[in-house]
Simulated assay, not measured.
Amino acid sequence: MGSQSYLKALIICLIAVIGSTEAQLQLGFYAKSCPNAEKIILKYVAEHIRNVPSLAAALIRLHFHDCFVNGCDGSVLLNSTPNNQAEKDSLPNLTLRGFGFIDAIKSLVEAECPGVVSCADILALTARDSVHAIGGPFWNVPTGRRDGLISRAADPLVSLPAPFHNLTVQLTLFGNVGLDANDLVLLSGAHTIGVAHCSSISTRLYNFTGVGDTDPTLDSNYATNLKSLKCKNINDNTTLVEMDPGSRDTFDLGYYKQVVKRRGLFHSDAALLSSSTTRSIITKQLQSTEGFFAEFAKSIEKMGRINLKLGTEGEIRKHCARVNN
């Protein structure tokens, strides 16, 4: 009787160990279930990003906005329904792009291996491959994420760092998802590519404290140029401004060089200079592009592990824009 109890206990332990092993991110998660998945994604990215390099910035932003709200579960990709307004229709996400790009890749992967590869993994891999395709860093993307079932427009409003946030708020929001000051500075480095809308900086330029003033932490000459050449009035919601003027499609140290000159576009960028800790991290990145790439890779891989759904949690969506029926 004792030996039978021991055997049962051993079997239960083995099942638990096997289950916990399977429910982990791992490199090559689809090696057996869909061995061509990552090749399909890479091929599509390589064929299309060269024609529209600006999409690299859009896709890494999409990955960021996904992970910071309910974890890296593809919830940002879901469409609103008559009974629910989804994340993509929340105010901070109205300028997100790249949804069609992800949907196109998902269709190709589904044709190869129906119901196997998650939208969350496709988004994480696509963000990496697109950045690398324009000469940016390469980082490991372990896979095995599952897709979430919930997407609420209210959540990004409380979870996402915003262009107007000071350093304290940014550190709090990063801390809420297990990231630190080093990760904040490194991931902000992605602002070296892409553009922003004037609406993101209009208050900073025209009404910073409510009396028609300009943020004093912004270089005065840069502010003047922005107001005369780009964002000509506080109501401009359509004009685009380069995050890193002159090299918006090049992943380099240009963003940090702009920040130390007090020419970071967002107030949140300028806030990185308000602490000796974050200033020193910027100084370290400016020592070499290779060093920055290596450190960035560590932080974004860390970001890609935020609040994951693994094992039997969530689902593998057939279409990234809607949950399975």
Results as ranks from 00 to 15, higher is better:
Leu286Gly: 01
Arg50Phe: 07
Lys106Arg: 13
Ala181Thr: 05
Asn233Ser: 15
Val177Asn: 00
Ala294Gln: 11
Arg97Phe: 06
Thr209Trp: 00
Cys13Ile: 13
Thr312Gln: 11
Thr203Trp: 01
Asn176Trp: 02
Leu42Thr: 14
Pro35Asp: 05
Asp236Ser: 06
Asp180His: 13
Leu186Tyr: 11
Ser75Asp: 11
Pro114Trp: 12
Glu110Thr: 10
Leu226Ile: 11
Ile15Lys: 08
His197Val: 02
Ala321Glu: 14
Val76Glu: 00
Ala223Leu: 07
Ala56Leu: 03
Arg279Ser: 09
Thr238His: 05
Asp236Trp: 08
Lys230Met: 09
Tyr6Gln: 14
Cys34Lys: 08
Leu14Ala: 10
Gln4Ile: 14
Thr283Lys: 02
Val195Gln: 13
Leu265Lys: 11
Arg322Leu: 13
Arg128Ile: 01
Val17Lys: 10
Pro142Leu: 08
Ser280Glu: 11
Val17Ala: 12
Leu205Gly: 06
Cys72Asn: 03
Ser268Gly: 07
Ile105Cys: 00
Gly98Pro: 11
Lys39Met: 07
Arg279Ala: 04
Glu301Tyr: 01
Leu171Ser: 02
His65Ser: 12
Ile15Phe: 05
Cys34Gly: 07
Val141Glu: 07
Asn79Tyr: 13
Asp183Asn: 15
Ser202Met: 00
Asp269Thr: 03
Phe64Ile: 10
Lys106Ser: 02
Arg305Glu: 14
Ala223Phe: 07
Ile60Asp: 08
Pro137Lys: 11
Lys8Leu: 12
Arg317Lys: 15
Leu59Tyr: 06
Pro161Phe: 03
Thr95Pro: 01
Leu149Pro: 02
His267Ile: 06
Arg204Ile: 13
Cys34His: 01
Asp213Leu: 02
Ala56Glu: 07
Asn182Tyr: 13
Arg145Val: 05
Gln85His: 01
Ser228Gly: 01
Cys113Leu: 06
Ile49Val: 15
Val260Phe: 02
Leu226Trp: 04
Asp249Val: 04
Leu273Lys: 03
Asn70Pro: 00
Leu7Ile: 10
Ile49Trp: 07
Leu253His: 08
Pro216Cys: 00
Gly246Ser: 05
Pro35Val: 08
Leu91Tyr: 12
Phe64Asp: 13
Thr238Ile: 07
His191Lys: 13
Leu27Tyr: 02
His63Val: 06
Pro156Leu: 06
Ile105Ser: 09
Ala58Met: 03
Phe138Gly: 01
Leu173Thr: 00
Ala321Phe: 15
Leu14Met: 14
Ala86Cys: 11
Ala127Trp: 06
Ser118Arg: 10
Ala104Lys: 14
Ser107His: 07
